[in-house]
Design a protein around this nucleic acid. Structure first.
Lengths: 202, 202
DNA sequence: ATTTGTTTTAATCGTTTGATTAAAATTATT
DNA sequence: AATAATTTTAATCAAACGATTAAAACAAAT
């Protein structure tokens, strides 16, 4: 059972680490953000590194949860499942804008750890989602994985390159939210276009 | 005219900064990588921060160059221009795998500086590429910018999430290269699918 | 050949940073 | 209420880090 203080530190650590990454955050930043004495970080979490690991694993799991949640629902069509997946990630990233870049950064710093925690291959292969997608593609030349990568790319990347996107589109924060929500509605349609053209050309 | 030493430092700094980011790199790392005395960094570049800025601006400009290069060639069709753009970024990222994540990281740390350096809106609007794309879309419901974002997303994101992609696809480094090259050939086709479906549904 | 200017080096400085400690404050137990 | 255990605090430590310095090594100029 986590103390009140312990929880405050964890929340603060999550915020600061997410925003600045491991190397750029000082333990004093976290202590200040938590409104807590510096020594308490070590009292509860031993070291900066262990605190980071604990926080990072939680973030990674939040990230993974969305995937797990909507990959195995066979009561919905492929397109509806895809729509839900994209919607959920879009809303997650709207709530926590630093999440995607943080995860990608960790993926660079600790590829094997992150991949081991998420195990994306294990999640996708054998899932309802993958079966639906494969069935739809038939013996098309491009495989299901590439289509999946396209969907994730189109969903994630605008958040990672947000300031650039806002400049290109000439929009403020408020309209960025509208834009990604509209993209979220469009991406399944776009994916279906890709699939269908791909089927026809074979 | 840059000294030999000065250039060695810059090259080393570029490599280390790209890999680890500003906060995580120590000046001693750079000195060692350059095979040069630590004090020479300050002798030639005043401070770690100024060295970083110099290196970062060069990286950002390398990044921008590809965009500038292929956005205004009206001797080629839209699809051919798109193909060249995607090919060039793909080959750039194969040569410098840390580039996309580094730029995105800087975009988070210093959004206004990076956007000001690249000015993507100024590059795109009024460009041949944008005119070709807009002409193709006509009065379709989705605008040219979204299509452009899709192309860039599908091109960039696999590099940013590389370890994840390699796990999902079950491929090693060598086959990752093959995969992104194949994607590079497919993305223009996929983009055309999106455009054409979008036109039809309006 | 001597002087002047430039580049490189080893040593060291002052801060910052993560971590520890010993005492104080608070809470729990008897 | 007295004692023991836990939590919090202020002060401080040692290591790491960016930066500086003074002297040495080297090159250029006269």
């Amino acid at each position: 059972m986590a103390t009140d203080t312990e929880e405050k530190i964890k929340v603060a650590a999550r915020n600061v680490f997410k925003k600045k990454g491991f190397a750029a955050t000082r333990t004093r930043d976290i202590a200040e953000e938590a409104g807590v004495n510096l020594a308490l970080l070590n009292y509860y979490f031993k070291s900066k590194e262990l605190l980071f690991n604990e926080v990072m694993f939680e973030i990674i799991l939040d990230f993974k949860r969305t995937l797990v949640q909507f990959l195995n629902d066979d009561s919905l069509s492929f397109e509806d499942n895809l729509q839900r997946l994209i919607d959920t990630y879009t809303e997650l990233f709207l709530r926590e804008p630093e999440l995607p870049l943080f995860v990608m950064g960790e993926l660079r710093n600790n590829p094997q750890v992150v991949v081991e925690k998420i195990k994306p291959a294990d999640l996708i292969y054998g899932s309802t989602f993958e079966k639906q997608l494969s069935a739809m593609l038939g013996n098309s030349s491009v495989d299901a994985t590439q289509i999946f990568i396209n969907a994730i790319s189109m969903t994630f990347f605008p958040f990672i390159s947000r300031p650039m996107v806002q400049n290109v589109c000439g929009i403020d924060d408020e309209n960025f939210v509208k834009m990604v929500r509209e993209r979220s509605r469009n991406i399944p349609k776009w994916i279906m276009s890709i699939i269908q053209t791909d089927i026809k050309t074979n």
